[in-house]
Design a protein around this nucleic acid. Structure first.
Lengths: 206, 206
DNA sequence: ACACTTATTGACTCTGTGATCAACAAGGGA
DNA sequence: TCCCTTGTTGATCACAGAGTCAATAAGTGT
């Protein structure tokens, strides 16, 4: 006996939340349509009605995850900082410091990353986001490089953005793998020192 | 009708190689005991005879992968370089430049990494290797920091090693996800510039 | 020759999964 | 009131997977 109809597309959101719950608590490999449906208190058939297949559900979950997890623009309080270097490092600090709180999301993101190596659609979505993420840093990197072209000769804004992203992602990997043995604050401090900030009289690099 | 007996533990190696072939060509999630057995030209029962369970097979595969993939010691030609900074950067260059060739291994490694978030044994093995990897850089980092304590105040060899590992892993992630859009050479160059080498007269940092 | 341990096979069981579908409920318009 | 579209259910199907097991072959010691 069918239950109540839900208004609009609340059902999709409800199912996606259940899917996230399952994936983040049991792992993406243990996610099944039945488990998601049970977690949402719905029948499995309904999941196939709203998302045509399990694969489509996973892709939708990835969208849902990226939407709510990856930074997509520079926050106003950071955008108002005077120098490009400060802005870039403020973003890095912000991105890294929130990693421990966003651990479930980050873990699931890595699962999708692994999945993406064999799944063209997932791969494409992650590539897009990665590119978007790098693009957020590129103007800052360009400004930094333009201010003093002599210090980092032959380096493009592109590769400097890639470096920043690598540092953030690499930190994320280590945090997810060994959160108890990884000192996030020290890591942030190292990044800032390496990029030459807060060391009076030594601000030569970048 | 049982087939020929294989000498010693050649069978285990044979099965592990088949497992790697399956995992790297179809993805770790598509790895089944049957597929591995078929790929090795053996019966599925034999896989369970040599490895007690699929789980144990996966753990053995991880060992096999780590054994042959992750650098575990500093190569002699690098160890003979005069300065600690040069040695560290030579390792980084070596590690990054071989990423495109080791892409299958790296992809599989990331799959295990994702698996490790829910699998204590896998997690532990990866943690160990990660720590071992960091430990390889630590003496170099310590030496670099000791040579000029003023330039990078308050930074530990530990966090500097973590930074180096983050850069390598973060680069690996981007290479696996978008190998055609990622300029490995430019990335290596950026790393070297950032760490202040090959820029005559500007070798202040690190 | 004979027993005994170790490999090896493939059929078999049991469980769970993705997907389908007929049935049925709810609401909205004509 | 009567359709007709949209939701919703749970039974059902076909199938694949992990793991078991009796049977059997190949060595190994005696």
């Amino acid at each position: 006996m069918p239950g109540q109809k839900a208004p609009e597309n609340q059902r999709k959101e409800q199912i996606l939340q259940a899917a996230f719950k399952v994936a983040s608590s049991e792992g993406l490999d243990k996610l099944t349509v039945r488990r998601v449906a049970a977690n949402a208190g719905l029948s499995n058939g309904l999941v196939f009605f709203h998302f045509k297949s399990k694969d489509a559900l996973l892709v939708a979950l990835l969208d849902w995850l990226l939407e709510g997890t990856i930074a997509t623009r520079i926050r106003p309080e950071i955008a108002s900082l005077p120098s490009a270097k400060e802005r870039l490092l403020a973003i890095v600090r912000h991105e890294i410091s929130r990693l421990p709180d966003k651990r479930q999301q980050v873990e699931l993101f890595f699962s999708f990353w692994a999945m993406g190596t064999r799944h063209p659609q997932v791969r494409h979505k992650i590539q897009e986001r990665l590119e978007h993420y790098r693009a957020m840093f590129r103007p800052l990197a360009a400004e930094i490089l333009a201010q003093d072209p002599a210090t980092l000769p032959g380096i493009s804004a592109e590769s400097l953005s890639a470096m920043v992203v690598a540092i953030i992602e690499g930190c994320a990997m280590q945090v997810t793998m060994a959160p108890e043995h990884f000192d996030v604050e020290a890591f942030i401090a190292s990044t800032e020192r390496l990029f030459g900030i807060r060391v009076p009289g030594l601000e030569l690099y970048i």
